[in-house]
Design a protein around this nucleic acid. Structure first.
Lengths: 214, 214
DNA sequence: ACGCCAAGTAATCGCTGATTACATAACGTG
DNA sequence: CACGTTATGTAATCAGCGATTACTTGGCGT
């Protein structure tokens, strides 16, 4: 969408491209968004960047490495979206914070289904080879843990739920909702609500289930 | 496992194979289990079945069609495993039935991670082209709905939760746990419990969260 | 001005999915 | 039993893919 930020192939100053690395990632992002991960080919990316089929391998060791770079970029956007939702959130409303996190998570995933699949797979990309992704993933989990512990300190949750269990359950639940959307499990959705609203309602109900009964 | 059921290439009676269709699916299943979906190639499958590279296309329109057949077979096993867990389950214990369903679901997914990914994707296979998969999927959901409604009749759940919401939430939760496992999100698991036990504990806690407080 | 070296190209390899023309064997029918 | 039809295999081939290699280009520091 912000195509102004994408280095155009017209930026080529002659024999050399200018900033081929970024241009390749941008082209890959666009291609993936159009046709899905499976359709991503190095040659097509090269063609879109206006270079020869072998050129990308000067900048990326393999197709997987290119895809990993795309994932890193997507992960940045994802993490930013989630963390932005928590900006200046009052410490005395940890349950609200967790709900806001979940909503931002779901919104990003439903808005960027293909890229969500990319960043959440460990098969498509070289996750362990990307310290950046691992770090951002860990940071996100730490943020969750922080707010969960704040909520526990405030005695918000039912008894018998330790932090690890709540963290795992919350991750699983929001991941499940997001992936159901991305994996098209709601194609034949015949509930009353709009599917996206159903996701939100489901999230709210889940959090309610964690809380101490009023 | 039950390699006796697999039509051996030695069953070839001469020029014709005997039952190449089944042999191809069996070879594909084995290959996928060994090396993952992405590594599945029609040629390799043909080689394992002892036929020429083009032969499979007499039985499957495309690589995707072959993969869909594999998914159908896996879906059969998956559905059987889940439904078997409910065999003769007493109607007056619907919550127990739902828990048993969830456990059987999780067990199959963790025991067959690669095939679980295959059957739960809508990108790898031609889901809408397989009435069999769609049917079995729908049947599974109907079974869930049945037990949920029984539990609701018994006033087991918290107020404010309609059947659709519980069904969606339950699907999402168990799908999330299963996919976290299959997508290797628990690689860096550092909790106290064994990861598989953590999944079960998480499932139990989720169900507890649906119930009316004692 | 010169030479080094990053970053392109061109050509090629082996593998893939898919298609075509052809060969073989199994089967039903007179 | 002979014969033609049809299902099912082979062989050859195509285009597209990731990846590697040898070569070429041109920008930058000394």
């Amino acid at each position: 969408m912000e195509s102004a930020a994408i280095p155009q192939s017209s930026a080529r100053k002659g024999y050399h491209h200018g900033n081929l690395t970024e241009a390749l990632v941008a082209a890959a992002v666009a291609l993936i968004e159009e046709s899905g991960v499976e359709a991503l080919s190095v040659r097509e990316v090269a063609k879109r960047a206006g270079v020869s089929p072998g050129a990308p391998f000067r900048h990326f060791e393999s197709r997987t490495a290119l895809l990993t770079a795309v994932a890193e970029q997507a992960m940045d956007r994802f993490a930013a979206a989630v963390e932005q939702a928590l900006d200046h959130w009052p410490e005395n409303d940890p349950v609200g914070a967790l709900r806001a996190m979940g909503r931002a998570y779901l919104r990003w995933a439903t808005d960027n289904p293909v890229h969500f699949r990319v960043i959440s797979s460990r098969q498509l990309i070289d996750f362990s080879g990307s310290a950046r992704m691992a770090g951002q993933n860990a940071a996100l989990q730490e943020t969750m843990r922080l707010w969960i512990e704040r909520a526990r300190s405030g005695n918000a949750f039912r008894s018998g739920l330790d932090t690890e269990l709540i963290l795992l359950s919350s991750r699983a639940f929001v991941y499940g909702l997001a992936r159901m959307w991305c994996d098209d499990h709601l194609r034949d959705w015949h509930g009353n609500r709009d599917p996206k609203d159903a996701l939100t309602a489901s999230l709210d109900a889940f959090i309610e289930g964690l809380l101490r009964a009023a």
